[in-house]
Computed example of a mutant assay.
Amino acid sequence: MHFFLLVFACALYGSTFALNNGLMRTPPTGWLAWERFRCDIDCQNDPKNCISENLFIDMADRLSEDGWRELGYVYVNIDDCWSSMERDGNGRLQPDPKRFPGGIHKLARYMHNRGLKLGIYGDMGTHTCGGYPGTTLDKIQIGAQTFADWEVDMLKFDGCYSNFTEQEQGYPLMSKALNATGRPIGYSCSWPAYCGGLPPKVNYTQLGEICNLWRNYDDIQDSWDSVLTIVDWFFDNQDVLQPAAGPGEVERPRYAAHW
């Protein structure tokens, strides 16, 4: 099993859309499924590695029983391919019933009972990167409320199958919708990764107003070469990224991130 630190830099700013949810004042750490398990849904032939509630229960047990939680590793994050291919009768996303028979809310409670937090994945587009139902502009409000009803603690909002105009509207709208639920949900925006990661194409001032953290660069792969490539990219661009980084503060949080 590979445990990976979620490395986040922090910065300061505040405005009307600022999340102001009291979260992620320091770099959040935990475990994310994507790097190792990708979109493995073959639970019949690969039950220990498929994207299912059993995988995330196992990770929760490892974090809570093996000393990781005490070191600050508290997030267990579901990535793509968790959902059913169809929304429910009310238009809400729903988990695959065979792979998540207990539902996401029950899984969140499992995390919380062990002093952990549950993260989930969504996509600002017609489909997720793995081809599952996305969250178009008209589905953002119901999506945010669904995650809040499930007691989810963090949302990673990807950007596959959408264009810049839709992203420009959707990422701020999701921020506002999450705030409106009344539940503190850490908001991770993948928007800059779809715009090259660097200013002036990426407006880090705006990102700081709407997101707790964000993604700048490509997916990490299961190799040391991939890690080095990511490190090199941040090193080569540190002069333009550094102004958007800094410690959090209570009144006006802004956070940057790379998954």
Rank of each mutant, 00 (worst) to 15 (best):
D96Q: 04
Y73A: 12
D225P: 01
T135G: 02
E70R: 02
P172T: 07
G159I: 10
D239M: 05
L23C: 12
Y13W: 10
S226Y: 00
F3R: 12
V231L: 11
Y73L: 14
L12M: 14
K117D: 00
N212I: 06
G143F: 14
G102D: 07
T128Q: 04
I210V: 12
S15I: 03
L118D: 00
K106C: 01
P133I: 07
I210P: 00
G134R: 06
I210L: 15
E209P: 00
D40G: 00
L207Q: 09
F235T: 13
K201P: 01
F37I: 03
D66R: 13
I41F: 05
F157L: 13
L137C: 01
E249L: 13
P184T: 06
T229H: 10
G102K: 03
P95K: 03
K176V: 15
Y255L: 15
L23Q: 12
M111W: 03
Y132W: 15
V74W: 00
P97W: 07
F8I: 14
G131T: 04
G72A: 03
N179H: 14
W31P: 10
Y110K: 00
V74L: 05
V74N: 03
P184F: 04
D225A: 15
V76I: 14
M24W: 15
V250Y: 08
F3K: 12
K139F: 06
A18L: 11
G196R: 11
G248M: 09
T26Q: 15
L5M: 09
G14L: 14
R215T: 08
S175F: 03
F157H: 07
G208W: 06
K98P: 00
N113W: 01
F17W: 13
D123Q: 04
G119H: 03
L107W: 05
L6Y: 08
Q206Y: 10
P192Q: 10
A177E: 06
W31F: 14
L228W: 06
R99C: 05
Y187G: 08
S15Y: 06
A9M: 12
L23T: 12
G30M: 12
T128P: 02
N216H: 13
G131V: 04
Y73M: 11
L241T: 05
W224N: 09
D80S: 10
W214P: 00
D46P: 00
F37Q: 07
A144I: 05
G197E: 07
S15K: 13
L173H: 05
L173I: 03
S190D: 08
D80H: 01
G131N: 04
P199T: 05
M124S: 12
G130A: 15
M24G: 11
V74Y: 00
P133A: 07
S64P: 01
G102H: 04
D40I: 10
L12F: 11
L63H: 04
K139I: 05
K176L: 15
L71E: 11
D236W: 02
A144L: 08
P192F: 08
W68G: 00
K98E: 10
G30E: 06
I185N: 07
E209L: 10
F147V: 11
F8P: 14
A177I: 07
G91R: 06
G115N: 04
S188F: 14
R183I: 14
